[in-house]
Amino acid sequence: MESRFADKNTGKHYEEVALIGSGAYGTVYKAKDLSKEGQIVALKKIRVPLTEDGVPATLIREISLLKQLENYNHPNIVRLLDICPGKKVERERLLILYLVFEHIEQDLATYLENCPSPGLGPDKIKEITYQLLKGVDFLHTHRIVHRDLKPQNILITSTGQVKLADFGLARIYAPSQALTSVVVTLWYRAPEVLLQSSYASSVDIWSCGCIYAELYRRKPLFCGHSENDQLTKIFEVIATPPESEWPKEVSLPWNAFAGFKGKSFESLIPEITPDALNLLKKMMTFNPSKRISAREAIKHFYFEEYELYPPEYENNNDNDYNIICNQKTRRNFRFHSDFQSAN
């Protein structure tokens, strides 16, 4: 990437500061927005092959969907600030697009790494999981399946606000465009994906379940190093499902995994409370049609206390959200208005 680029149509000006990382699909840079006093942003570079007929229709639809989501300003979704076309590589018929996102320093993976013993504590875990599910529910409502939820693309602000990133991009980057041979992690993959069966939005709930358990454990729940190994690790815990629930159209036979008795989640997460365990089990259900949905999960009794006092964010002038942690002051302050709106 050129270290600086400008868009003459809008007068936007970005200057690269550092390479954040290169994933399976492309490269992410940390950059300064020179038109906004050097505000730090995250630039995601994607390469789009131009066809005979110009920009592929699917890409146009996906990107305008991402733009449309911006109108909702959802607190648990990373902000897409701008989309900039970069240099066009004429000979290769390749278009380079930069998606400009708000930059958040920390992802959930580093957050967990840096967390001192004895861990996050049940309240913090609940708050993070709730926000995670809120974000996922928002995506599902807009018919977006994330498909690659993992701690690395869940961002967490200094005030504890959770924001999902990297959604809706899976369909933008065609699989053939995977630029690097980065191994995509299997740890958060739902069994139906590992079995290459058909799948739906429920795959995200499985990933949420894995992440939820990881918040307690501060290490991943299932660390397989191949599809088979990953499935084995899963069944060692949740037990082999009855043959009737095994998807029909898959190449891996049920026999190959038969006989796992499973073990209790309590043995893996001793400190988990009964309510929390109940939700976790519903998220880690083998049969995708029986797995809890994001909407149902939000309403689960584990989150009962949020029904009246959901975690709140306040928009301050820096366009950043702050979570108000002090429940007591909020309760006193909000009681009157809550009462009115209930009528």
Binding site: T10, L50, V55, I60, S64, L65, K88
Partner: peptide, 18 residues
């Protein structure tokens, strides 16, 4: 011309086609 112009229009509309 149309294929080239497509990018210009996309940019001008800020990719917001909804």
């Amino acid at each position: 011309s149309i294929v080239r112009c497509e990018l210009l229009v996309l940019r001008m509309l800020q990719f917001n086609l909804n």
